[in-house]
Amino acid sequence: MTLDGLEHATQARIVAVDWPALAGDEAKRLRALGVDEGAEIKVLHRGVFGTRDPLAIRIGRMTIALRRAHAAAIEVEPA
């Protein structure tokens, strides 16, 4: 399952990240924010309009916003 399909407020763990699918700087930024294998993650909020894009996720003690396109590259499993 990827992060964009993760149920709201369900605690999950990152299993793998498809880094090549992300633009270079975006991969760097995500990694710097703590997105990496093993990290605990949870979807807190979803954006407006039909697509429910972007997402606000909890990682560590931070809330970060990212797009569904990024979330689709992040493989998670419920923790």
């Binding site: 633009a23 930024r29 924010l33 931070m62 970060i64 990212l66 797009r67 396109a69």
Partner: peptide
């Protein structure tokens, strides 16, 4: 360029 992304800390 690649469609710009949106990644930011809240």
């Amino acid at each position: 360029g690649a469609a710009s992304g949106f990644i930011m800390e809240l």
